[in-house]
């Protein structure tokens, strides 16, 4: 576990101010309990016109379109979009493999999660942060309002890496307990022995809007390994003796690319948001540029 971030300020004030003006774009509209700055599918008392429908008994007369009645001699009701708050679920992978890299993937994931949480809180969305590995390790209750960001920071710093990744079981457990749909942001290195597709299928099944943030380290993309090695899996301690040859390294790199392409292809197929980054990529640029390019922020 890399606890070096525990006492480190994740973001300075200047960075937080920049994030304040960013907003999260949800690809779908979600129903909410409180008014917020999000449009939902539910028609309500908002100011922005949404649609017409035929008047039925009991509808509010104030929303009848009288000009249409004079033209068509039919009672037609104007519908308005109701602005509601958004639920954002941050699934942070805290398996042992996330401690790998310099800086570690978990540290990078903490900062991404903190930044997006702040943006969500600033836009009056409900933010949930869930730490998972081979199950739900810890969960933070829904937070709303910018003032709760420090609570989120504290929660994130207390996350420790450990355990094997089993995203499917983790998501299934969480989704069955929390039925409310929302934006599920999965921040992970995507190394799951059971395959990430089945895990994302769970989120899709519960009709969440999904955004995958795939974090990789340079050591994984282009490992600088030579000679006779015993490779030990950090999650399950399974070891394997191999001789690193240039051709083997090339094969690994090709396999890594194939793996990433498979995830990206899956996300594209089901219209899931996907962004891949490496741990030494400047964090500020990632937030301000990569997410904008990936249509995550506007």
């Amino acid at each position: 576990m890399n606890m070096s971030t525990a006492n480190v300020t994740l973001f300075d004030d200047e960075f937080l101010k920049k994030l304040e003006y960013l907003n999260i774009i949800s690809k779908r509209l979600f129903a909410g309990q409180l008014r917020a700055e999000r449009r939902t599918r539910k028609r309500g008392t908002g100011l922005e016109f949404a649609d017409y429908r035929a008047y039925v008994a009991g509808d509010d007369f104030r929303h009848l379109d009288w000009k249409a009645y004079l033209r068509l001699n039919r009672l037609i009701l104007k519908l308005f979009e109701e602005e509601e708050d958004l639920r954002i679920y941050f699934f942070v992978d805290s398996s042992q493999s996330m401690s790998y890299g310099d800086p570690s993937k978990l540290d990078y994931a903490r900062r991404v999660c903190a930044a997006l949480s702040y943006i969500g809180l600033a836009n009056l969305d409900r933010v949930n942060v869930i730490s998972f590995a081979n199950g739900i390790k810890s969960e933070m209750p829904p937070q709303r309002g910018k003032g709760r960001i420090f609570k989120i920071f504290r929660f994130l710093t207390e996350i420790t890496p450990g355990g094997e990744t089993n995203a499917r079981a983790s998501f299934k457990t969480y989704c069955t307990e929390t039925r409310r749909r929302g934006l599920a942001v999965v921040i992970s290195d995507m190394f799951d022995g059971n395959g990430f597709e089945s895990a994302l299928d769970i989120l899709r099944h519960f009709r969440h809007d999904i955004f995958v943030i795939h974090i990789a380290s340079h050591e994984e993309i282009d490992p600088m390994l030579r000679g006779e090695l015993q490779l030990v899996d950090s999650e399950n301690n399974v070891s394997r003796e191999i001789t690193i040859t240039p051709s083997l390294l090339a094969a690994y790199r090709a396999e890594f690319s194939k793996y990433c392409e498979a995830i990206e292809s899956y996300c594209g197929k089901y219209q899931l948001g996907y962004a891949r980054t490496v741990t030494d990529f400047p964090f500020e640029e990632l937030i301000l540029k990569v997410f904008r390019q990936g249509r995550f922020l506007k």
């Binding site: 190394f191 799951d192 022995g193 950090s234 399974v238 191999i242 083997l248 094969a251």
Partner: peptide
């Protein structure tokens, strides 16, 4: 031939590569 022990994040990809080769 005593191999040097190296910790990696995950052996999923290595396993795939080696199994195939």
């Amino acid at each position: 031939l005593r191999h040097r022990r190296v910790l990696i994040s995950s052996s999923i990809l290595w396993r795939r590569v080696l199994d195939e080769r």
